[in-house]
Design a protein around this nucleic acid. Sequence first.
DNA 1: GCGCGAATAGTTTTT
DNA 2: CTATTCGCGC
Length: 925
Amino acid sequence: MQRAIYLIEECNVRPESIFIATFTEKAAKELVTRITNELANRNITANINEMYIGTFHSLCLRMLKEHLEYTRLRRNYRLMDSFDQQYMVFQNIHRFRSIPEIEIVLPNGGAWKQAETICNFVNNLSEELVSPEELMSDHDPSIASLGRMLQEYRTILTEANLMDFSSIQIEAYRLLCDNEGILNELRSAITHIMVDEYQDTNYIQEQLVFLLAGERKNICVVGDDDQGLYRFRGATIRNILEFPQKFANGECRIIPLVINYRSNSDIVDFYNRWMDTTDGAKFKFRWENFRYEKRIEPHEKSALHSPAVVKLAGVNDEDEWHEKILQFINNLKTSGKLMDYNQIAFLFNSVKHPRVTALARFLEENHINVYSPRSDMFFQRDEIRLALGCLMLMFPFYVQGLENGEYTFLQPEHLTYYRNCIMLANEYLMQPEHTDLLKWIRRRGKDHVSLTDATDYAYCGLMYQMFEFQPFAGILDTDMDVGVVDIRPARNLAKLTQIIGKFEYLHRVDVLSADKYRGKRGIDANTELLFNLYLRLLYDGGITEYEDDSEYAPSGCVSFLTIHQSKGMEFPIVFVDSLTNVPRKTTNDLMMTIEDRYFKRPAFEPYEVTKFFDFWRLYYTAFSRAQDLLILTCNEDKRTPSAYFKEVYDELQSVDSEAFDIREFNFKSVKAVNVKSTYSFTSHITVYETCALQYKFYRELEFMPVRANAMLFGTLVHETIEDVHRAALRHEEQTITEENVNRWFASNYVSLTKTEHTYLAGPQREAALKQVLRYVERQHGDWSAIQQAEVDVSLVKPDYIIEGKVDLIRGEGDTVEIVDFKAERKPDMEKMRDRLERYRRQLHIYAHLVEERTGRKVSKMHLYYTGEDGGVPTITYPYTKSAVEGTLASFDDTVHKIMKKDFRHCADDPKVCAGCDFRFYCRNK
DNA sequence: GCGCGAATAGTTTTT
DNA sequence: CTATTCGCGC
């Protein structure tokens, strides 16, 4: 971070020449915040918007988006998370099963399990840049069929315009390798490359870094070879250990950072000792050359008599262990040493383990809130069980099917879960004060049983109707400032709408219909699909609850983290659990063979010791999170702590011992993170100003809107006009013909209807196309004025960042004009007046940012306003400094209201509520 | 009581 | 995949 500031300030390096890659979004956000704050403090105006800063994945995505036409991707591609990926393979499993000899590599078993295997192979191979062609020509039939599997997978991706996590990086790598022009452009733009946590990079990431660096090789990497935790996704510490060898003698400077400012010296001694304990009853290994020679030194000797590393154990009794932990935390609290529960973190191998969730439940029962978003509690939460139960009750045929045991393929745990949801819902509905919800559900149930045509809603829409009743309305009514645990039900309901919305998207469900489908009524077939397949798989895979990046550790809560999650963080008091764990082998034989033959470099760390290395590094990372007090904790039994910890564990004093004295400690408070949020005009400011409640639901809580197709019209016009501009910018004006516009329009329509999951009626479609053609016509083939399209602009304020995208700048010399487009199906003149005023303010901001960014004066602002009923009116606004100032001030005001989470008021104009899913909730109802 | 093989129980991490 | 337990033979 300091280096980035130093480069910008002292060396006059332009921010847009700096490339910084991190591994997590959170780290990237933190970095942006600190850099912008520091620059602001020193009164340096720099546009960090153009700076390449983010995770490897986000940076690769950015490069791809900027050059989409050079990739296999088309616009509106869909980015899949790992569940989506597996679900996609699952849905296409027949295509994989029909590959000849596939049975050698695919174990028998369910389609879902096989999909998982396929995803694992595909991801691993991709991260190492292994191509399907080379595998297919291998004489080993299992390797050859893996090659065919990979090829089939890639074919599906291309056909459906999809992308997964590992293809992001491959596509970016291909883009740079295959297009010298783009590579050179980037190489000359980027002069300084920095990578954080370099020990966690994998092969393709290393290749990307050196590819971008070119001959200049101006690369600065930071990392700790002892904290490499991501072998399972291809990361290898060889990248950092061998880094110096990639440079000529003396060209690479190594700066060892061995002084530790984080931890008490007892803690530092403890984890140094841990790394030296490589020989014990069950194990013996040596680090040899696989560890950089260093010894971490504490910055000062501990001033305490009391040990700062202790153990806290129950003996063969989980309840006793729980009690002891509770008592310890309560003691801390009553001693006044603990200011906030967030000073305490518990680290685990996994937070999904029943032992961990049991502890969390126990602490919560005893009034200590636990923040543990990755512990897969989503489906266990009351609000989710109740919502699912009520939803099922609206489909009596499905409930009947469950009760009659018709769904024999469901596991007992799923049956139990669904039945419990129904029971919970029934119990709730039987209470007299909830009869209105009961009546409504019964009414829906009857409708669905006797459905003869189709409803005008699907599952997600039904949920929104249900939110009108208690307890859902009450949950939605929660104020945003109540703290993570109290707002959790609202966030979980939002997540549920996202999940169900995605189901409707994936299976093209937009109404419930009585039409026959696979021998059943569509409504019944879809309901079974939703619960018996989709939600069941999600239930098995687990859903992470909302994670708050804006706070280091949420105030008022003890944090439960995986060790992986905790990396890069520090806490005053750290409990390390998971001492039952043992080193485990992670590789499989087939991948080993492929590694030998097809990976671009031979194996690095010896195969027999990697499991020890990984194990030691994992716990080194865990232990070194502690600042003031490190506590090893477990419920001791035969195998806990495991033999690997025995030696270091036995030496520790217990918290009960007299040597340990809590009064000597002074605990630091957790550092404030204060990440700057980024707001954009259209998706934040305008939404908030239109209706703060809509902002709360759609933006803050991220409820999934039930889409109306009104917005499709605008997007369609917009995107096709962008295609026209792109052609002009490539100096291919001759390709801007009616025929091509038709083609661009058609292809945009296809991809948009896929992603937006809605369509435009014929006449509306015609009208949209006509709008584009009319715009083209008006230019009379003269595109010379077009200079630059899609300029990203950002404004860095002390506590937030505004971001926007200008459609088009045109003009010569110092003076430019900016142009924006708005398209709407049926412009309503009364509504428009208010809207146009907003657009004008938006244009003012853009103009201001363009001036700041390009150093060119903006003379005019044009808005093309297009609609179904004809004409392409251009509205031209004057650009004045004083108007900008006024706008900036009101803008600032709005953002601050958003940051204060002031979402209580509602729109003034009842008309804006027409398309809102939360109409019932609104005071304008 | 010891050595040995077989059976059995518990069982992740992430962009 | 590892560690523990069980059964069996000696």
